[in-house]
């Protein structure tokens, strides 16, 4: 179905990837930890290495929970697909797209 309107109705998305240049929005969810009410959203370059992404974005956010140990996260998934990320892989190379969801468990 689509919108019933009084005139042609066609507008671009307000969150489309091109508005972020070479970057994209990435969601990260710590599964099973209820201290975090939801996944977090980051703006990260598509070419950013996994090592940098985890150290500069995921770790400081996850440390909101004082029990977080950066060595412990595992069971990584990208949009539901299991991955074993190496630090030098890029986000793009891992299959992370605009508004993708990365999940982990501890």
């Amino acid at each position: 179905m689509s919108v019933r309107a009084i005139a042609p109705y066609d507008f671009p998305s307000s969150s489309r990837q091109e508005l972020y240049g070479d970057d994209q929005l990435v969601h990260v969810l710590w599964e099973g930890n209820m201290m975090f009410c939801s996944a977090a959203t980051f703006r990260a370059p598509r070419e950013m290495s996994w090592g940098d992404f985890k150290a500069q974005m995921v770790d400081p956010w996850a440390a909101s929970d004082p029990d977080y140990d950066p060595r412990c996260p595992g069971g990584w998934r990208v949009d539901g697909v299991e991955v074993s990320p190496r630090p030098d892989q890029t986000l793009g190379g891992l299959g992370v797209g605009h508004k993708s969801l990365i999940t982990f468990r501890i």
């Binding site: 969601h27 969810l29 599964e31 099973g32 209820m34 975090f36 009410c37 939801s38 996944a39 977090a40 959203t41 980051f42 400081p60 956010w61 440390a63 909101s64 969801l101």
Partner: peptide
């Protein structure tokens, strides 16, 4: 504090905090 910004629902715009029906510890996606 949650030291970051949350993932939002495109429709209701509430952070995506709600859980799977029947599984109150699993965030619905």
């Amino acid at each position: 504090f949650f030291q970051g910004l949350p993932q939002l629902c495109q429709t209701c715009q509430i952070p995506m905090i709600f859980t799977e029906p029947g599984s109150p510890t699993v965030i619905a996606q």
